[in-house]
Write a protein that binds this DNA or RNA. Structure first.
Lengths: 187, 187
DNA sequence: GTATTATGGTATCGAGTCGATACTATAATA
DNA sequence: TATTATAGTATCGACTCGATACCATAATAC
């Protein structure tokens, strides 16, 4: 019971979406990897909006990630600026153009359509199953989880509605809690 | 409710597996696309073991599919022969080497591991959810379903344990029922 | 029965991905 | 101060993929 059947299903789903993403992105001169990167920076928090974090997130080499970012910057979809505390670090942020393009392209039309067809209840159940699967895969892969602060083991609840990161000791707003963090930990 | 969260999950799962597939395949000089093609022909039935069917399955152009096949043939992982009835058509079959390599590489180790960690019951539930999602996506995409004969609307049950394809009128063995067919139809 | 069109497949080219390696700049550590 | 680690870029080669053109064969039109 190696789960080959399940694996084939995931492969096909991923492939189908990838083909769609390629077609849609091509209309704007973008490849799947570009859109993945753009989507990442749209949701990355202040500890995670760097090329190095993207490298880990996508599982590619830093050279590849750097190239991807150069393309996005060339299209004026993201901006880069030097970190003022650590001058080795580059901070990446979406431009308004990048954000509106992302809203238009993701998720792909075929996904929105399928999601509607499934209905809210089924879609939610499928989503939960995939979350479970992803978690297991990340553990098996010993890779970072890149979850949101809201679900992080480092999150500290203070009195009232205040939150703080246990790693950096910095306070977190409620918006912060919805962002992806490279230091995210489970358990 | 566009299902962006669910989409991100699928993207991440697909990406994680793709990275793994790339690393494993690289040890044998194979790219992800090669292994996908190899896996397809391992399961394709007699109506579907052609480059044209692979083209539809992977959602790429026929030129791309042709190149992929040339690589596989070069590595002696598949063989090609001309169809005797329609000489435009090429039939593709795995070699013993191709089959054993596939058994070794798919599903990737990280998948087997995650599958074990999840446990049989959960793995089955996740698999069912994925099947449902894939079906909805294929309908939304108006793409062929590439299911097995066992689940096909064309399948005719004859007396006893005999089966026949309603499209080609040919008899189907019980092994045939487990193979992928490009003419597969739902409903 | 021949001309036309459709289908299956290959060849070739260019744009782009991605990994590998080498390199620079800055920070952290010995 | 010297060494090492980290963040990022530059460059190169192998490869993917789409686009286009092309060839052979089958199906269809007339």
């Amino acid at each position: 019971m190696s789960g080959l059947r399940g694996y084939e299903l995931v492969e096909r789903i991923g492939n189908l979406l990838r083909v769609e993403l390629r077609q849609e992105g091509a209309k704007h001169g973008l490849q799947p990897a570009h859109l993945q990167a753009l989507a990442y920076f749209a949701r990355a928090n202040r500890y995670s909006n760097t090329p190095a974090a993207l490298t880990e997130y996508l599982g590619v080499t830093k050279g590849t990630a750097s190239q991807t970012l150069m393309v996005l910057e060339g299209f004026r979809l993201v901006t880069k600026r030097e970190d003022k505390d650590d001058r080795r670090v580059t901070r990446v942020a979406l431009t308004a153009k990048g954000r509106s393009l992302l809203d238009k392209l993701l998720p792909p039309a075929v996904w929105r359509c399928a999601n509607t067809d499934l209905g809210a209840a089924t879609a939610h159940r499928v989503e939960a199953a995939m979350a479970e699967l992803l978690c297991a895969l990340q553990i098996a892969n010993q890779s970072r989880t890149f979850g949101v602060c809201n679900t992080c083991a480092h999150l500290l609840h203070e009195d009232g509605r205040k939150f703080r990161c246990g790693l950096t000791a910095e306070p977190l707003s409620s918006d912060d809690l919805q962002l992806i963090c490279r230091e995210h930990a489970v358990g």
